[in-house]
Every structure is written in structure tokens, then in C-alpha cells.
């Protein structure tokens, strides 16, 4: 790393940081669009879980590449781990609650194997 002139790697890091900031912001926006456009609670939950998590991870990656300090990176890793661990849990809890309280229209799901009649046990 020290052979190349010092400006080179910082430029590379900045470019990668810029790209991941843009991609992360785009995914966050797409998650919001999905949360607004999708017509069922469960479909909205998909938008919140996947693009939002990766969007956040990419934004934090961009931040880490810009600040380039170990203590900051440590905390950002922690944020990413928290996100990856909590997003599926909250998605599961919200969708389960939606199912149990009848906020999900079972007829809109084809096939719907949760239906007691359709269970193939």
C-alpha cells in the first residue's frame, strides 16, 4: 500500500464510498416506494426487510470508507450486526400479528397453505 503514492488509495476509497452511498440511498428509497405502493401488509414487510437492510449496510459501508478510523468501523459493524439480527425478528413479529388479527386478506394469497382447510398434514 505504501509503494503507490498516498493519494491513490484514498481516491479509490472515496470513489467506492460514493458508489455505495448512492446504491444505499437508492435501496432505501426503493424500500420506501415499496412500503407505499404494495397493497398488502406482508408485501410491505418485504420492502422493509430486504432493500432497507442492504441499503443501510451500504450507506454505513460508504461512511466507513470515508472516515477510515478503526473505532468508527467497530461501531458501524455493531450497527450492521444489530440490523441483520433484528430486521427478520421484527418482520416475523409484525407479519404474524397481522395474520392473527385478520389484517391480512387470506384470499389474496394464492396459494395460501396457511388456510386450515388446505393444510396437507
Amino acid at each position: 500500500m505504501t509503494e503507490v503514492e498516498p493519494g491513490f488509495w484514498t481516491t479509490v476509497a472515496d470513489v467506492v464510498a460514493g458508489v455505495s452511498l448512492l446504491a444505499g440511498a437508492f435501496l432505501t428509497l426503493a424500500a420506501a416506494v415499496g412500503a407505499l405502493r404494495f397493497d398488502s401488509l406482508l408485501a410491505r414487510m418485504h420492502a422493509i426487510t430486504k432493500p432497507q437492510v442492504l441499503g443501510l449496510v451500504l450507506l454505513l459501508l460508504g461512511l466507513a470508507l470515508r472516515v477510515r478510523s478503526w473505532s468508527a468501523v467497530a461501531m458501524l459493524v455493531l450497527v450492521v450486526v444489530f440490523q441483520l439480527a433484528t430486521a427478520p425478528v421484527s418482520a416475523h413479529l409484525v407479519s404474524r400479528a397481522g395474520f392473527r388479527t385478520g389484517k391480512v386478506d387470506p384470499d389474496a394469497l394464492v396459494p395460501n397453505e396457511m388456510d386450515p382447510e388446505a393444510r396437507r398434514d
Partner: peptide, 29 residues
């Protein structure tokens, strides 16, 4: 429903995190 609002709040918190991250990346702080 309340669940949709919970989902929206989750998203709002994520956008706040994103906004702060972008600002920190801009000022390298």
C-alpha cells in the same frame, strides 16, 4: 392498521440513520 404504522416508523428510523450516515460521510466526522 397499527402494524402499517409500525412498519413506517421502522422505515423512518432507517432513513434517519441513513441521513446521519450521509452527513458524517460528507464531513468525515
Amino acid at each position: 392498521s397499527m402494524l402499517d404504522r409500525a412498519l413506517g416508523l421502522d422505515l423512518l428510523a432507517a432513513t434517519l440513520v441513513g441521513a446521519i450516515a450521509i452527513e458524517a460521510a460528507w464531513n468525515r466526522r
